[in-house]
Lab assay of single mutants.
Amino acid sequence: AQASVVANQLIPINTYLTLVMMRSEVVTPVGIPAEDIPRLVSMQVNRAVPLGTTLMPDMVKGYA
C-alpha cells in the first residue's frame, strides 16, 4: 500500500511546511504520496491541518 503524508502536529493556516510537521503513514483515503515530502518542504498550507490529518493536494498552495 502507498504511504501518504500525515500531519505530525497541528499545522496552522498559512504555515510553511517543515520535515518535523509531516510523517508518512498508510491511510485511507490516500493523500499526497509520502515520496513528495521533500517537495512539500517550504510550501504553505491554505487551511489549519489538525494532528493526524492526511494532507490532500488541495490543502497545499502550489502543490496540485
Rank of each mutant, 00 (worst) to 15 (best):
Tyr16Gly: 13
Leu19Ala: 13
Lys61Pro: 15
Val26Arg: 05
Val45Ala: 05
Thr15Asn: 06
Val26Pro: 08
Gly62Tyr: 06
Pro57Lys: 07
Val30Pro: 14
Ile37Met: 13
Met56Cys: 03
Ile37His: 03
Val27Tyr: 02
Val26Phe: 13
Glu35Ala: 13
Gln2His: 15
Glu25Phe: 05
Ile11Thr: 01
Leu40Ser: 00
Met22Tyr: 02
Ala48Leu: 10
Ala1Thr: 10
Ala3Asn: 09
Leu19Arg: 08
Val6Leu: 10
Val41Thr: 08
Asp58Trp: 09
Pro38Asn: 15
Glu25Ala: 11
Val41Arg: 05
Arg39Ala: 12
Leu19Asn: 10
Leu40Tyr: 02
Leu10Gln: 15
Ala7Asn: 02
Thr54Phe: 02
Ile37Trp: 03
Glu35Asp: 14
Glu35Asn: 14
Leu40His: 00
Arg39His: 11
Ser42Gln: 14
Arg39Trp: 05
Arg47His: 08
Asn46Gln: 09
Pro57Thr: 04
Ile13Trp: 06
Ala64Pro: 14
Val27Asn: 04
Thr53Asp: 12
Ile11Cys: 02
Val45Asp: 01
Ser4Met: 02
Asn14His: 14
Gln9Arg: 05
Met43Ser: 08
Val27Ala: 10
Gly62Cys: 03
Thr15Ser: 14
Ile11Phe: 02
Thr53Arg: 15
Lys61Cys: 04
Val26Tyr: 12
Val60Thr: 02
Met21Lys: 06
Leu55Ser: 00
Pro12Thr: 07
Glu25Val: 14
Thr53Gly: 14
Arg23Leu: 08
Val27Arg: 15
Pro29Ala: 13
Thr18Phe: 04
Gly31Pro: 01
Val6Met: 06
Ile37Gly: 05
Ile11Gln: 01
Tyr63Pro: 05
Leu17Val: 07
Ala34Met: 04
Tyr16Gln: 13
Gly52Asp: 12
Pro57Ile: 05
Leu17His: 00
Thr54Trp: 02
Ile11Asn: 00
Leu55Glu: 01
Met21Trp: 03
Ala3Glu: 10
Val49Arg: 04
Asp36Glu: 06
Met22Asp: 01
Leu17Gly: 00
Leu19Gly: 12
Val30Met: 15
Gln2Gly: 09
Thr15Glu: 15
Val41Tyr: 06
Pro50Ala: 11
Ile13Ala: 15
Tyr63Met: 09
Met21Thr: 04
Asn8Ser: 15
Met21His: 09
Val30Asn: 12
Leu40Met: 07
Asn8Arg: 12
Val20Trp: 06
Met43Tyr: 10
Gly62Ile: 04
Ala48Met: 15
Thr15Cys: 03
Val6Cys: 03
Asn14Tyr: 09
Arg23Glu: 05
Met43Asp: 03
Arg23His: 10
Ala34Asp: 13
Val41Asp: 04
Asp58Cys: 05
Ala7Trp: 02
Val30Ala: 11
Thr18Gln: 12
Ser24His: 14
Ile37Gln: 05
Tyr16Ile: 05
Thr28Val: 10
Gly31Cys: 03
Thr28Lys: 07
Ser42Leu: 11
Leu55Arg: 00
Ile13Pro: 08
Pro12His: 08
Pro33His: 09
Leu40Arg: 00
Met59Asp: 14
Arg47Phe: 13
Thr54Asn: 02
Glu25His: 13
Met22Phe: 12
Leu51Met: 13
Val45Pro: 04
Ser4Arg: 02
Thr28Glu: 09
Val26Trp: 08
Asn14Val: 02
Pro38Phe: 11
Thr15Asp: 13
Ala34Ile: 11
Arg39Leu: 06
